[in-house]
Nucleic acid binder design. Sequence first.
DNA 1: TTAGGGTTAG
Length: 477
Amino acid sequence: MLNHLISRLLSPSLRSHPSKISALRFSTTVSAAERLYNHLQGCTTNLEKELASANVNLDSTCINEVIRRCDPNQFQLGLRFFIWAGTQSSHRHSPYMYSKACDFLKIRTNPDLIKDVVGAYKKEECFVSVKTMRIVLSLCNQAKLADEALWVLRKFPEFGLCADTVAYNLVIRLFADKGDLSMADMLMKEMDCVGLYPDVITYTSMINGYCNAGKIDEAWKLAKEMSKHDCVLNTVTYSRILEGVCKSGDMERALELLAEMEKEDSGGLISPNAVTYTLVIQAFCEKKRIREALLVLDRMGDLGCTPNRVTASVLIQGVLENDEDVKDLSKLIDKLVKLGGVSLSECFSSATVSLIRMKRWEEAEKIFRLMLVSGIRPDGLACSHVFRELCLSERYLDCFVLYQEIEKEDVKSTMDSDIYAVLLLGLCQQGNSWEAAKLAKSMLDKKMRLKVSHVEKIIEALKKTGDEDLMSRFSTD
DNA sequence: TTAGGGTTAG
């Protein structure tokens, strides 16, 4: 009976006897991955050609599996496979896959891997396209390897290729983000020499870099130069400068810039949006100038710009940090909801989360319960935070009761599965078998996957209760 | 090219 529970709660990848559906999926992907991996093993040269002959349908599960098998000492092989897979027209790596590849292949701690693979392409006279190089650069980008990205950029001619604006932009952004503005600037100037033109993205990366370094004047100088390359200053770029001004602490100047953006004669190209206003609001909140932050919200509303969740949470946190008066909070929430773009649920959930972060637990619990009695559904983040707090103070039964109430409200938000495990464990430990069984059933219904360590602990706890009824509940489900 | 809090999947 317990085995039945274990096998249902365990993740399929960790399960020794997967259920029929996942077993089917598992076996097909494993065999594809196995075939590719075996091909990789047999290659001495022309690895990419060899892989093409494997004639396998690529998907992320299969790619993941192949790379995983290259651990611990075949990382170069794994990287070549990943790059090859990305060049296939039938497949495109998602950003998630790039980060997975960086983790699995430990590219951050071993950046030479990139050079080794590109070096091998050259040595083996492999066919290398712009697409190949773009994937290599994307890996550098994911791993934040500016020097390696530059090295790759320099390798383009060796393969008879010309670096394009996209490639330059990626490298420039890496250096600008790193704070190496002289290198970023040098590359931008170099673009002109090789027949490329910096575009809005190039300028935005540079301006962002200058602003982060506190060099607002440099950022402005660049912004003025944009028209030289037929680039038009837009809301995003202008907001970047405004952000820099805010960070420098000159809020009066920031308000002037905001007014500049709001002027109609700019043709709307730099009209402030929710992000622009939120940046200014946030800066005022950080400086404890909450009244002025609220004035910016009014201004936002006057100009027909709708606040979003970030605007709301920044302001709510600001009010909570600066003011003890609950009336101010409800006035703010009322205003936010009236302006549209953000719901009562989002506002109250945000207030709950802020209060918990500020360690004002009692107020957080009050607001959370108020939401429930008023029929406002809390969001997943608020639920996760409240449940975690209740579990931390070992109020498992209270947590369970709240959980049930929320389930009744039909909250479809995703919650941290670890919290469910801790709650289930706590209920078992405190002898609340009936509640534990109910929760376990709900977890099974949700097809929730738990860590092996959690399941093991839960099973141990269940054994201690020795509750036959509980056992049968699990086995009959 | 533009942000941000927890999770899930890929």
